[in-house]
Amino acid sequence: MQNSSLAVLQKLQDLIQVVARLRSPDEGCPWDLAQTPQTLIPYVLEEVYEVVDALRQGDPDAIADELGDLLLQVVLQAQIASEAGQFDLATVAASITEKLIRRHPHVFGDVAVADVEAVKQNWEAIKATEEQDRSLSETATGETSLVPRLSRYARSLPPLTAAMKISRKAAAAGFEWETVQGVWDKFHEELAEFEQALQTETKAHQQAELGDLLFTLVNLARWYDLDPDEALNSTNQRFIKRLMCIETVADRPLSDYSSEELDALWQQAKAQLANDAVRLMNVDQP
C-alpha cells in the first residue's frame, strides 16, 4: 500500500514538474505562458463535461484519459497562482483534505449515523454552518445570508443546475408553495405569459418570460424529485438516436423530405428504438 501511494505521489510530482516547465519563462511553451486563470475557464468547463461523458459511457480507458485532462487544469491553475504568490497545489490539497475531515465527523470524529440519509443531513448542516460563517461579513453590510449563497450558484454553475440549487435553498428558507398544485398553477400562468410575450413583446421580454417558465419547470421537477439535467440529457440522447435511425433508412438528404414524410420516419424510429429496448430488457432478464 505504501509503495503504491509513493508511486502515485511520484507521478503527480512528474506532472507538476512538466507543467512548471511549460510555464518556464526561459524554456516554456508560448501558449502555456500566455494563459491566465480566466483564459483557461473554457478548457476547465470542456474537460469537466468530457469527464461526465466518459463516465456515462463507462469506458475505463476514456475515464482515466479525461480525468487526466481535468487534473492538468487543476495543476495548471495552481501553477499560475503559485507564480503570482497566491497559493499552490499543496494549499489546494490541504484545503480539500481539511474539508473532507470536517464534513465527515462520523468517520473522523465520534458522531454516529444510522444510514446514508443521516450522512446527507449532517453534510448539509455542516455546509450551512460553514456558509453562514463565510457570509458574516456580507451580512454585516446589509445583505441576507441567503442572497450571497444563491448568487454564487448563479455565477458558478450551469443555468439548469443553478436553478435547481436556488430553488431548493429558497424552499428550505420558506419561499415555497403549500402544495404542488400551486406550482402547476404557476406553470400555466408563466406559459400564458410566455405565449403572450411571443406575440406582442420585445425579444428581451420574451427571453425573460422563457426564463420564468423554465424556472417553474425546475420547481416542478424538484417537487416530483426529478433531475432536470438528467432529463434533458436523456432527451438529447434519444433525439440523436432517433435521428440516426432516420439517416440510416433515408435515401436522400433529409431536407428533400416533406414534413409528413419526416414525421412518418420519426415515428418509425421511435417504434424501432422502443422495440430494441424491450428486446434488450428481455435478454438481460434471467
Results as ranks from 00 to 15, higher is better:
residue 140 A to E: 12
residue 23 R to C: 11
residue 282 N to V: 12
residue 240 I to Y: 01
residue 132 Q to C: 08
residue 248 T to S: 09
residue 27 E to V: 10
residue 7 A to K: 07
residue 127 K to F: 14
residue 52 V to P: 03
residue 236 N to Q: 09
residue 232 L to A: 11
residue 212 D to Q: 01
residue 31 W to I: 12
residue 242 R to D: 03
residue 141 T to G: 12
residue 95 S to M: 12
residue 15 L to Q: 12
residue 97 T to Q: 14
residue 191 L to K: 00
residue 61 D to T: 14
residue 244 M to K: 14
residue 89 L to T: 03
residue 283 V to I: 10
residue 216 T to F: 00
residue 90 A to I: 13
residue 174 G to D: 04
residue 12 L to G: 12
residue 85 G to K: 08
residue 248 T to P: 03
residue 5 S to W: 10
residue 20 A to S: 09
residue 54 A to D: 05
residue 143 E to I: 03
residue 241 K to G: 02
residue 60 P to M: 05
residue 277 A to P: 01
residue 96 I to R: 08
residue 223 W to T: 00
residue 171 A to T: 06
residue 260 E to N: 12
residue 62 A to Q: 14
residue 9 L to E: 09
residue 285 Q to C: 06
residue 128 A to Y: 12
residue 177 W to N: 07
residue 2 Q to P: 04
residue 274 A to Q: 07
residue 198 L to H: 02
residue 223 W to H: 00
residue 226 L to N: 07
residue 185 D to N: 11
residue 280 L to M: 07
residue 209 E to A: 04
residue 206 Q to T: 07
residue 280 L to Y: 06
residue 31 W to R: 13
residue 194 F to R: 08
residue 83 E to H: 12
residue 112 A to G: 03
residue 113 V to W: 06
residue 190 E to N: 03
residue 142 G to M: 05
residue 16 I to K: 13
residue 95 S to G: 15
residue 194 F to N: 01
residue 87 F to D: 01
residue 85 G to H: 09
residue 21 R to E: 15
residue 114 A to C: 07
residue 187 F to V: 04
residue 103 R to N: 11
residue 102 R to H: 08
residue 225 D to E: 13
residue 162 A to C: 05
residue 254 L to E: 02
residue 282 N to P: 01
residue 10 Q to T: 15
residue 210 L to K: 03
residue 90 A to N: 10
residue 261 E to A: 01
residue 83 E to Y: 08
residue 92 V to L: 07
residue 186 K to F: 00
residue 169 K to W: 04
residue 144 T to E: 02
residue 285 Q to E: 06
residue 274 A to R: 13
residue 259 S to P: 01
residue 90 A to E: 10
residue 90 A to T: 15
residue 62 A to W: 04
residue 206 Q to W: 02
residue 103 R to F: 15
residue 255 S to G: 03
residue 246 I to S: 01
residue 63 I to M: 07
residue 59 D to N: 14
residue 28 G to L: 03
residue 255 S to W: 11
residue 238 R to S: 08
residue 86 Q to C: 07
residue 164 M to D: 02
residue 7 A to T: 12
residue 215 F to T: 00
residue 130 E to N: 05
residue 178 E to H: 04
residue 65 D to S: 15
residue 262 L to R: 03
residue 146 L to K: 07
residue 78 A to S: 11
residue 222 R to P: 00
residue 250 A to E: 06
residue 106 H to D: 15
residue 217 L to F: 06
residue 215 F to E: 02
residue 228 P to V: 00
residue 185 D to G: 02
residue 141 T to D: 06
residue 262 L to M: 10
residue 31 W to D: 06
residue 5 S to M: 13
residue 54 A to M: 07
residue 192 A to Y: 01
residue 38 Q to Y: 14
residue 27 E to N: 13
residue 3 N to R: 11
residue 151 S to N: 10
residue 199 Q to V: 09
residue 87 F to I: 03
residue 235 T to W: 14
residue 59 D to Q: 09
residue 114 A to M: 05
residue 59 D to Y: 10
residue 21 R to P: 02
residue 105 P to M: 09
residue 67 L to G: 05
residue 2 Q to H: 08
residue 40 L to T: 05
residue 144 T to F: 08
residue 285 Q to G: 04
residue 119 V to W: 05
residue 46 E to A: 02
residue 34 A to V: 02
residue 144 T to S: 14
